[in-house]
Amino acid sequence: MTTPTDTSAEVATGAPPLSMPKHLLSIADLDLPALRALLDTASQMQDVQRREVKKVPTLRGRTIVNLFFEDSTRTRSSFEIAGKWLSADVINVSAKGSSTSKGESLRDTAQTIAAMGVDAIVIRHSASGAAHQVAGWVDAHIVNAGDGTHEHPTQALLDAYTMEHAFGGSVEGRHVAIVGDLTHSRVVRSNLLALAKLGARVTLVAPHTLMPSGIGEWAQTDGFALATDLDEVIASGPDALMMLRVQRERMSGGFFPTPREYTVHYGLTRDRLATAAAANADLVICHPGPMNRGLEIAPEAADAAQSRVLDQVAAGVAVRMSVLYHLLTTGGLEMTA
């Protein structure tokens, strides 16, 4: 059994103490050492995930509430498994329907949960900034599990983890193209921040109607590229293609004429898969899920050898274990049952 002496040993070697934030609201909260620590610990957590007996006692006696104002089977399950494998008590609270101005105020909901004495609240909300606001109202650690169209930091962590492992250790200098509905994607905002910190080169691909306002200035400040022609980007041989989910309801909102036209222009079709694979032998395909097969990604691409979609799901549990561990403890990783 490893003990807290691990931590003191680190301190003794003169390594600077890790500045892990109290909450994980945005990837912007993490400096590079903290981001690195979360990804490296996730790797150890993945070892736990592969064991026959997966439970470690690290968070024994801690209580985590998954406070979900919006349905999300995969993210909620992933956080639930992560907490349980770390031996925390995990409670799922569905607050769907109360996330409007008509119901109980967000502050009252959050303070009620916090008053029960929970250590961490994992919050998913359809409104941007909800996790940020809750962090100002309660003492518990807050983990943003997706806030509106703002951020989804653990998704960016699992994407970075997946790509690092696919590329043999690092995304530095790799070209990642993120394709689809950028306006409504919390995944892309977190990924831009994480990939920039890790040194990847990013190109965002979308029609102008699905690009967030002010993206031009943003691209200049933060140093990523913008494109509207997916074929040109694929011809340049990107290392990774991250296909974003396109919600069908956006199609009727005037953002794009028809699903068919979207697929022709921005879908990862059979033909584009072949071109992309030919242009880059190490191609990696990612998708945050759930996939609209046949819309933004052809089944042939979703199930291709280059696809890392299921690796992403597995990595999701590992990075969430890492996040909960780092936020809720001050060191001393107990890795044995």
Partner: peptide, 11 residues
């Protein structure tokens, strides 16, 4: 609607 709303994910 501008760069800040784009970054914050607010319509």
């Amino acid at each position: 609607e501008g760069e800040i709303s784009g970054r914050l994910g607010l319509p």
